[in-house]
Design a protein around this nucleic acid. Structure first.
Lengths: 334, 334
DNA sequence: TCCTAGCACTTTCTTTTTCACAGTGCTAAT
DNA sequence: ATTAGCACTGTGAAAAAGAAAGTGCTAGGA
């Protein structure tokens, strides 16, 4: 258990380090705390023994450790009201009746990325949670057509396929078959069903049934398993601690879509409204913090994530995410 | 007019610098050219006077100037056969019957990016070149539906819209109207036609016609004006000359989708099969080279572009692009 | 006339040295 | 408990020194 003064000191160090990214010395603190730097130093030594602070070298000021950030987040952080400015900008998005619901989510995340210089991620439901809602085709010319697949979650994917020498009516019949027989199946089980339920039927009356079957099989087999949107990848470049190409490369690689979708998906939920995973607590990168929240509306469910350096403006991000989550869930059915 | 020996020297310097990114000294060259370093030095001085070579400082080796690269590309470069390895990998893609035509293009560009560590770009036709082919809807639930727009070029875009209190049959009627009256219109003129041709009609019988009109209007008004795919943005990080965050940032910003689509689109075509724009010759970045080719198939037309440092493996990229262009155009109608 | 050996000169890059600074830990006194 | 005082330490910037790479120029030889 920390004394009040120790808490105060830890808090100042965390906030100061978040602001300036420079180790915090005892002098800076004694100004605000009305005691001598020597006193602060001995307190800082105690906090270091407890594992809450670290030094970058023997005679440097102190930097929060991961455990220190954790303590701050759990015990010291006061959830601030959002700044009026932040609030206003977000409200403009959510009150813009021109924008469709989906765009609101995307736009607000984009705004968060811009305002904070962190990276935000929207992760929709995975393909095994999506079922086939409807499939339709648009012929382009004799040989080529577009297949459009819509899932119950409103996720849409389309693919250009070419079927030379296949009668368009046979394609239409096949589409009808699929729409009658397979709708409601989880996306990643569709290709299996195609093989055992559709293929035998069309084999009877379609000349080029092999070609036809293959084309549809591929559509479903390559269906994006994740529905992910990463916004502001390049923001990592704006932070002091990522000042060399290797680090930046490493992080940008992590942000690649498939990659990040898996990593975000693996987050073991802690069940809070907003969950914070600092450094080693997340599986994206030890140098980063991940803040996550989930949302659920009649149309769609998913996760919203903000990723930034451990030295992150926790208060602000939490406030922003809470606001967005709330707005999404209230307006989801507008 | 350069002497044979001067050409030889320039060529060696270009190739060597492309390989190692280090200024090339006279000693290295005299080994291969059977003459003394002093001779080479005086030749290099001449080439520098002609503006084909540059020094990084008074006593450094030589580096090709932009003009030097240009001379190399125009006069010295021998279009090599592709390496067997490159050839094989690409052929696997184009001979893979599982892959649809579109995927072949994307896959082969992805491969190029991986093999060369440059960035490649696929630019489809712009919205003013696309006309409306068909529009269709998939209802998700009472209030929400998906609008799918297909253009004559096979470009597809979809949008989630919500229309509370609008009868689905009215929506269907509107869709039919659009499909009957507006098909064939260039995409960027559609919203105008909606206003003057469709809106007056639905106003007569649809209660919430304002809502309905707005929704469709937005779909077309926000239609992506460019159809662009940038592959391997992060490759810029792998090149020696981009060793600081500012440069990398600058380039990565340039690669952002809307941005790059415009820049690529602005390229004034020189009408060759393959066009090379070195440094200031392109409008993407003075430190980069852009290699561009166009393709045209019955289904689609567009540009393929490779962007990399000026110190780029010209031979290889040209060979790769030529191969891909040829395969696309031959297989476009397979 | 062209080529080359030789040499002085220049710039960069790396290493070493020096120095001020910011900050610590400890001790002794309050 | 707190604090003033002081010795000590690692950093970072600046200056100094030396090695390496490469040039330009000159004079002599084919």
């Amino acid at each position: 258990m920390l004394t009040e003064r120790q808490k105060e000191i830890l808090k100042i160090i965390v906030l100061e380090y978040i602001k300036l990214a420079k180790p915090v010395g005892s002098n800076l603190i004694c100004d605000t705390l009305n005691c001598s730097s020597a006193t602060i130093r001995s307190e800082m030594a105690t906090l270091e023994e407890l594992g809450l602070l670290e030094k970058t070298h023997t005679s440097s000021g102190r930097v929060p450790s991961e455990k220190g950030y954790r303590y701050y987040v759990d015990n010291l952080m006061e959830i601030k009201k959002m700044s009026a400015e932040d609030m206003l900008k977000l409200q403009i998005i959510f009150h813009n009746n021109q924008l469709q619901f989906n765009d609101c989510v995307a736009e607000s995340l984009k705004l968060i990325s811009e305002m904070t210089n962190y990276t935000s991620i929207k992760l929709g439901s995975a393909s095994h949670e999506n079922t086939l809602k409807e499939i339709s085709i648009v012929p382009l010319n004799d040989d080529n057509l577009i297949v459009i697949v819509v899932t119950n979650m409103g996720y849409v994917e389309h693919k250009n396929i070419s079927l030379p020498n296949v009668d368009i009516n046979d394609v239409k019949k096949t589409v009808n078959l699929i729409n009658n027989m397979i709708v409601g199946t989880p996306i990643d089980e569709v290709s299996e069903k195609l093989e055992f339920e559709i293929k035998p039927i069309i084999a009877n009356y379609v000349e080029e049934h092999e070609k036809l079957y293959n084309a549809f099989y591929n559509v479903f087999n390559n269906f994006a398993s994740k529905n992910v949107d990463v916004i502001g990848k390049r923001n990592i470049l704006k932070h002091k601690e990522f000042d060399n190409i290797e680090k930046v490369s490493r992080i940008l690689d992590k942000f690649e879509d498939d990659n990040i979708a898996n990593l975000v998906d693996e987050i073991k939920e802690r069940g809070n409204d907003i969950n914070i995973y600092i450094g080693k607590e997340n599986n994206i990168d030890d140098d980063m913090t991940v803040i996550e929240t989930s949302y659920k509306t009649p149309q769609e469910e998913g996760k919203l994530v903000v990723v930034g350096p451990k030295r992150m403006d926790y208060d602000r991000v939490v406030a922003l995410l809470e606001f967005i989550k709330e707005n999404i869930e209230n307006q989801g059915d507008r």
